[in-house]
Structures are given as structure tokens and as C-alpha cells.
Amino acid sequence: MAIYCGIAYRRKSFWCYRLLSTYVTKMRYLFELKEDDDACKKALQTGAFYLFHNLSPMLQKSEPQYLVPKYSLLELERLLGKLGQNTQRIEDSVLIGCSEQHDAWFALDIGLNHSSSINASLQKPEMETELRGSFMDLRKAFLQLNAKDVSLLSTAQALLRWHDAHQFCSRSGQPTKKNVAGSKRICPANNIIYYPQVKVWKRQSGGKLQKKWDWR
């Protein structure tokens, strides 16, 4: 009996160590992307994009839930080109996470006007027709999304909202510029760095989702 207990304990310890190791590796990779613009630019080439329009995520109905579509860089460039938009708009994307295989995830709001955007915001109806989905209020779709998607979309929405509200320096009044990952904004006039502090949905130990302050 003691032998079986010992084997079970070692197996459990192994899987706990593996999960912890995977988590640490992901966090290190995300930290690298946030601090290294060149690394983040490289990750953009193979990353996946979640689309928003005025802070409402693109969702596709699949009974009884909503699906959250992801788009590659090539698909996004084709979409913007088809709608007469400059692909420079992709630079407004913000890093929101990555997979265990280190495939980076980004969020892009094509309805908000940013200081770096050349074109005006895209119209919602034509985008929904082209993408075969709907830009929905996250609160209305909340109960029809799985917990993982809720957490990810909540993080993306909060970061996009923060960037939209901090386009200008509170001291100099000059436009701020975000780094590639969107983990900070810098005022070129005085080099003040602004870091986002956002409220995101997080899963607690009991499986319940709760909104908490988080630094990004």
C-alpha cells in the first residue's frame, strides 16, 4: 500500500512541477515580448488577433454558446485591404497573452480612432458582414462564453480602453506613444512612462469569476 501511495505522490508531484514549469515559461516569454519591441514584432507575424469594435468583441453564434474567432496577420491584412484601410492600423494591437506553444495573442479595436491611425474608424455593419459575426457587448454575451474566453476578452477590453483613455500625457499634453506590445505608453516630450492598471475577470480557486485590479 505504501508503495502505491509513493508512486501516486510522485506522479502528482511530477504533473504539478510540469504545470508550474509551463506557467513560468509562458510568463517569461510574455515578459520578453513586453520589453523587447523586436521580439514582439516577430511574434506579430505568427500571432492570432481578436477583433473589437468600440470595445465590443467579435463573436460568432454557435448554439448554445458564442465562439470567439481568431484571425492571422495575413487574414487581417487582407480584410483591411478589402475595406480600403491601411495595414498600419495593426500597430494599434495590444498583447493579451499566449498559448503554451508560445503563439502570441493580440487584440485590435478597429472602431476606435488612435493617434497612430491614418484612416477613420471602420463601420460596424460592413465589418460584421465581412466577418460573418457580430460585435457584441461583452456583458450581454457573458453567460454564453466559457470562462477562459471571458477572462481573455475582459483583459483585452480593459487594455484597449486604457490605451484609448491615455493617448495624451497628463503633464505635457503631448500625444503618448505605446510600445509594440502595448504594455506601456511613453511621452516623447518628457519621457514619462505610463503603465496600464486595469480591472480584469479572474477565476478564483472555487471556479468563480471575480473582477480584480491587475497590472499589465
Rank of each mutant, 00 (worst) to 15 (best):
M1R: 14
M1D: 12
I3M: 11
C5L: 13
R10V: 15
K12T: 07
C16D: 08
Y17W: 14
Y17F: 15
R18A: 12
L19D: 05
Y23F: 09
V24S: 11
Y29F: 12
L30Q: 01
K34N: 14
K34I: 07
D37E: 00
D38F: 07
D38Q: 06
Q45C: 14
A48W: 02
A48T: 00
F52I: 11
S56P: 05
L59E: 08
L59N: 07
K61M: 15
E63M: 00
E63S: 05
V68N: 01
L73K: 00
L74C: 11
L76D: 12
E77K: 10
K82F: 12
K82S: 10
L83R: 02
Q85V: 02
R89G: 11
I90T: 10
E91P: 05
E91Y: 05
D92C: 06
S93A: 00
S93N: 00
S93L: 03
V94D: 02
L95A: 13
I96Q: 00
G97T: 04
Q101R: 04
Q101P: 08
A104D: 06
D109E: 10
G111K: 01
L112P: 10
L112Y: 12
H114W: 02
N119A: 03
A120C: 02
S121D: 03
L122H: 08
K124Y: 15
T129D: 04
R132F: 10
G133R: 01
G133E: 03
G133M: 11
S134N: 14
F135A: 10
F135W: 11
D137W: 07
D137Y: 13
A141M: 08
A141E: 10
F142I: 01
L145D: 11
D149L: 04
D149N: 07
V150P: 09
V150L: 11
L152C: 05
L153V: 14
T155C: 10
W162G: 01
D164K: 12
A165M: 08
Q167C: 00
S172F: 09
S172W: 09
S172C: 15
P175K: 02
N179I: 14
V180I: 01
A181K: 08
K184A: 10
C187K: 11
P188V: 09
P188D: 04
N191E: 08
I192K: 00
P196R: 04
P196L: 09
S205A: 05
Q210T: 07
K211G: 09
K212E: 15
R216Q: 13
